[in-house]
Amino acid sequence: MTSDTWVPGKRSDTATSGIASDPQFTYVLRIADDRLVLGHRLSEWCAHAPILEEDIALGNFALDLVGQASAFLKHAGAIEGKGRSEDTLAYFRDAVEFRNCLLVELPRGDFAMTLVRQFLFDAFDILLLEGLAASSDKTLGGIAAKAEKEARYHLRHSAEWVRMLGDGTSESHERAQRALNDLWMYTPELFVADDVERAVVERGIGPDPAELRDRWLVTVQRVVSEATLTLPPDEHAASGGRIGRHTEHLGRMLSDMQSLARAHPGATW
């Protein structure tokens, strides 16, 4: 536009890009981005874990999550229909175009932070993936069914660590509690339903996230109590990831993750 044709924008423009696009595309992207970002965070532990067996375990989970991300991204690209491959979506979107929840993009922190975050996500993930098994989108359902087997295993592992850290030494207990306190405000975002989810539920593509919360809380309360930890109070809820309003952490993470691919656009690897 020029100064002659200048018009004010709309209130809805304050939301970031992509909201107007196909809700099914956005929905699958949200699922994919959660895994891509979380898998990447886990992969940062490679060669730095507390003991060899755990290095292997975390590596396994990173692998599972990035593998799932790849499958979901490929499907998202197919839904979008603009020829964007899983790599194009992973490496050539800016932070504002990512649709992961904030919980997964936070830095890995110490081991307690990583495992408590993992547990909170895993407990949600098995419910989500279970809900997707009956999706009217058969491809989505298929990817979710395979991922669910992996998610059950992840939950077993992360729940066990929450118990071991919570009911281990006083130092590990303190760190686990601190992690839980710091992460709690990021959990409500997992269960928020906006227009995208409403459309998806209507079309039978996926479960209503708000309905997952009660069952999630039962699992979380049980494990937290077994771990002799205390559930933090529900206070402020942080959100925005689902519409591209991320923390500063994501941009920095992507600048590492995407740097090589972006340095050689169009190259094959």
């Binding site: 990447h40 992969s43 940062e44 490679c46 060669a47 290095d55 292997i56 590596g59 396994n60 990173a62 692998l63 990035v66 593998g67 991300a69 790849s70 991204l73 899983e86 790599d87 992973a90 490496y91 590492d256 993750m257 740097s259 090589l260 691919a261 050689h264 190259a267 690897w269």
Partner: peptide
């Protein structure tokens, strides 16, 4: 691993190191 330039390479490198 964190800078692998494609998802396939990221996955296979992770698997290798594991």
């Amino acid at each position: 691993i964190t800078r692998a330039p494609s998802l396939r390479r990221k996955i296979t490198l992770l698997a290798k190191v594991q």
